[in-house]
Design a protein around this nucleic acid. Structure first.
Length: 275
DNA sequence: CGCCAGGTATGAT
DNA sequence: ATCATACATGGC
């Protein structure tokens, strides 16, 4: 590919860790290469990124505003330093942050997030990535050599379950199609979800077969940047039961989703739990 | 091989 | 309303 190189200087490098951001179970299109770069697709652009202290070294296939796009994607204007300071008053959040500082909630495409988290249900992360990759390979547009965009809802709306057989998505295939049909027809209005409160979004998304409370929360958090969304999966269930039997700490109110990401990753990966 | 995975739909109490 | 079970597939 004909690469365009760029650099991003981070104002607060201590609250950004590229590897943690793209590999903490919130996005499924990034992978690490032998040379320490992370490759992935944002919108219709392919990126190769590497963090070196306060610098992100980048390459992309498209001419354009990569820096601006990634500033938005990584949500660099959000003040994580202040947030993390307030979280540190809670014992367990403090432990999670100490070990995994640098996690941020990415601002992903709404439809991609919805579709990805439909696929995520009762599934494991490596396999989710595989299904998403096959979905892109089979139904997306080739944006550079062997790299495909995430397919539009309109494209999938015309598919039947058999058409998705190659994905090996199992029982989730019909859910993907139902979502594609309802989103492309406007029966589920993603723009309206963006512009309305979270309760509206919950009700709207749960019109889709295969979207329950958990997938709806994930979509609202990762696909609509609604930081008050709080997905409860098996790991968060565990941590609530073990650490917060009497309720979550008050300080996370308004940014529960961010706290959730730290706790999720910590509970799932930390040796503190002697996994 | 068996248990489990960033759950949800469905049907039975 | 709450609870049990099936669900496709494959990671570990």
């Amino acid at each position: 590919m004909s690469n365009k190189n760029f650099e991003i200087k981070l104002n607060t490098p201590d609250v950004f860790n590229l590897e943690l951001c793209v590999d903490c179970g919130q996005a499924f299109r990034w992978s690490k290469t032998e040379d320490g770069f992370f490759t992935g697709v944002v919108g219709n652009s392919f990126y190769r990124l590497k963090q070196d202290g306060n610098t992100i070294i980048g390459e992309t296939n498209t001419q354009g505003e990569s820096v601006k796009i990634l500033n938005e994607y990584f949500d660099f204007n959000r003040d994580y330093e202040t947030l993390i300071k307030s979280y540190a008053t809670d014992k367990y959040l403090e432990m999670a942050i100490t070990e995994y500082k640098g996690i941020r909630i990415l601002k992903q495409d709404s439809w991609e997030a919805l579709c990805s988290f439909i696929i995520s249900q009762n599934n494991n992360i490596p396999r989710i990535k595989g299904i998403v990759e096959r979905l892109c390979q089979n139904f997306g547009e080739e944006i550079c050599d062997g790299v495909y965009s995430f397919p539009q809802a309109e494209k999938l709306a015309g598919c039947c379950v058999e058409d998705l057989g190659q994905l090996r998505a199992g029982f989730r295939a019909r859910y993907i199609i139902d979502a594609a049909k309802k989103v492309s027809s406007g029966e589920v209005d993603l723009k309206a979800i963006k512009n309305n409160d979270i309760e509206f979004g919950r009700a709207e998304l749960m019109k889709i077969t295969g979207v329950g409370a958990k997938v709806a929360e994930c979509t609202l958090l990762y696909g609509f940047a609604k930081m008050e969304a709080f997905p409860i999966d098996v790991w968060v269930k565990r941590i609530v039961r073990e650490m917060y039997p009497d309720g979550l700490p008050e300080i996370i109110t308004g940014s529960q989703g961010i706290a959730q990401q730290y706790l999720f990753h910590w509970r799932r990966n930390s040796n503190y739990f002697n996994k």
